[in-house]
């Protein structure tokens, strides 16, 4: 028999937040820091996402890109591609928006303690990885190593470029950045993430690697092959997937990927769990 409690929380009802600050990251890409109007800040795990609602426009899923150790600073990075994301990139300090979440699975940063964490990011895929990067950097002594391989379209489109420099300046990280093309002012690498990853892996004991990947699906597909070729155990690779999401709570059915709801069972999946379907077309 169904038991109905009074005042059951409705997971479809947004909570109101206010924009504390907003800053441009790249052309068409903006970060916002939010603070709750209704109630206290909500803890989140690295890799989780929120449904952000712009009044009168609509709601979309955006991963949380701030530090999980500072949940009171709720940060999202959004690229303007549709009506809602365009509205989110135009927010100003003091504006209000609705938030539902956090939703979904997380990068297993705690379970992979003691491992060499290899982050592989492509384009805006760095945003959902950043909370996990923060966690590993803050607890660096708990991990055998930390490598970030990051690919972007061009030097102008490197997300969090200044922050990457500070990560690189630490002596306990390996940071490899590559772009698809550049002008001669660029002194870094030009080439795809996979080539860069092959090099980064060459100096690491593959058995010790736990890899977290986020970026275009095609980039993750080829990167997983590089990881496998290098001998990284298949059960130590996680990817973050993107599908159409309307409800984020497993009700609307849009984000199904085989037996999984990307919103509930993902977005972070252990790769070997989804691998058979990833190679099928139009799943």
């Amino acid at each position: 028999m169904l038991v109905v409690q009074d005042q059951e929380p409705d997971p479809m009802l947004p909570r109101r937040y206010r924009v504390r600050s907003t800053w441009a990251e790249l052309a068409g890409v903006t970060s916002v820091e939010l603070t709750p109007v209704d109630g206290a800040a909500v803890a989140f795990r690295p890799g989780q996402f929120n449904m952000l609602y712009a009044f009168g426009v609509g709601e979309i899923a955006i991963s949380i890109s701030g530090d999980p150790a500072e949940p009171q600073r709720l940060i999202h990075t959004t690229r303007s591609v549709g009506a809602v994301s365009a509205a989110l990139t135009k927010l100003c300090e003091g504006d209000m928006l609705g938030v539902r979440g956090p939703f979904g699975s997380a990068w297993p940063v705690a379970a992979e303690t003691g491992r060499h964490i290899v982050f592989v990011a492509g384009g805006l895929g760095l945003a959902p990885l950043r909370p996990a990067i923060y966690h590993v950097l803050e607890h660096r002594e708990r991990y055998a190593g930390m490598t970030l391989v990051y690919g972007a379209r061009s030097p102008d489109e490197l997300l969090y470029a200044e922050e990457i420099k500070t990560w690189k300046s630490r002596f306990d990280t390996e940071i490899e950045v590559t772009v698809d093309h550049a002008n001669p002012a660029w002194t870094g690498r030009v080439g795809v993430v996979t080539s860069c990853l092959d090099r980064a892996l060459a100096g690491i004991d593959p058995a010790m690697v736990s890899a977290f990947l986020c970026g275009p699906e095609i980039m993750m597909r080829f990167s997983v092959m590089s990881l496998a070729d290098a001998g990284v155990p298949p059960d130590r690779v996680w990817i973050s997937m993107e599908r159409n999401m309307k409800c984020a709570i497993g009700f609307c059915g849009h984000c199904q990927f085989g037996p999984d709801f990307v919103c509930r069972d993902g977005p972070v999946f252990r790769h070997d769990h989804v691998a058979p379907l990833l190679s099928m077309k139009e799943i």
Binding site: A152, D180, G191, V192, S195, M219
Partner: peptide, 19 residues
């Protein structure tokens, strides 16, 4: 072959905004 495959990926412009 590795380099040709890499160039193919670059041609796809996978990080580009797809409107």
């Amino acid at each position: 072959a590795v380099r040709v495959r890499a160039l193919r990926m670059q041609v796809l412009d996978i990080y580009g905004t797809k409107k």
